[in-house]
């Protein structure tokens, strides 16, 4: 469904993405894992049109995402840090998003808005909200327009335990409905519960891309964190790779 072909991006001398080719399908929840600077954020930003790749192609159901902002109506994005105009009320923020996307969407999904009781804070200005509450708003906005692809950047960071559970349930439900979920997290136990596949990046290249179940079966471990640790140790045994020390 979502495919990258030889996707390349450099920032100065740093190769953030090095001819990355990968295909992601409906019904997958792909966890992007890799050391800092491995290219996870750059890959996400390319999908969202925030970063322009130097070379390569990025397609959604065969149609190029590059230079076609209209296709982003099929993508929902939850950023790592949610900051909104200071004096805007929460209700107005949702109105603005509705106005931006109303031409392309008939159906909205307000499950998370109910779960997080957003209507209770609709009159507050975004400046007065805590980081966790802003994160809840970001999550609601990502799911609001029922997009086919969901990009979640550190979705559970800063959320309270109840909200984390609600979000995980939502992610699993949407994946079961055939959505593609692309997510990053430093909390491997969270990924363990919601991801179906792991895409491991090092230095902008794909190290491996496997279903979690297969990885667990091969390594004999039950927890994803153990599996990843084992794989990284094995990888460094083959020969030292720069920056491959920590996920």
């Amino acid at each position: 469904m979502l495919a990258a072909h030889c996707l390349t991006k450099s920032f100065g001398r740093l190769r953030a993405l090095d001819a990355l080719s990968v295909t992601l399908s409906r019904g997958q929840a792909v966890a992007l894992i890799g050391p800092n600077g491995a290219g996870k954020t750059t890959l996400i930003k390319c999908v969202l049109g925030l970063v322009r790749p130097d070379a390569g192609e990025l397609t959604l159901d065969g149609a190029s995402l590059l230079g076609h902002p209209g296709l982003r109506s099929r993508i929902g994005y939850m950023p790592q840090i949610g900051r909104f105009p200071e004096h805007m009320r929460v209700g107005q923020l949702f109105e603005l998003m509705h106005e931006i996307r109303r031409d392309t969407h008939s159906r909205t999904d307000e499950d998370l808005m109910h779960a997080f009781q957003i209507d209770r804070i609709a009159h507050q200005t975004t400046r007065t909200l805590s980081g966790g509450t802003r994160q809840k708003i970001s999550a609601c906005l990502a799911f609001l327009f029922d997009p086919e692809v969901l990009v979640l950047d550190e979705p559970t960071a800063g959320l309270d335990p109840v909200a984390v559970e609600a979000l995980k349930e939502k992610v699993c439900a949407e994946r079961a409905r055939g959505k593609l979920i692309l997510l990053t997290s430093h909390i491997l136990s969270d990924l363990d519960e919601i991801a179906t596949d792991v895409l491991y990046l090092i230095d902008g290249r794909m190290q491996f891309y496997r279903p979690i179940e297969a990885l667990k079966a091969e390594s004999g471990e039950i927890r994803l964190s153990r599996v990843v640790a084992q794989i990284m140790r094995a990888a460094s045994g083959d020969g030292p790779r720069p920056g491959a020390s920590a996920p």
Binding site: L50, G70, R72, I75, G82, M97, I100
Partner: peptide, 12 residues
């Protein structure tokens, strides 16, 4: 900046 980034990820 963060809000412009969020808007840039919309179909705009």
């Amino acid at each position: 900046h963060e809000f412009i980034e969020l808007l840039a990820a919309q179909p705009l």
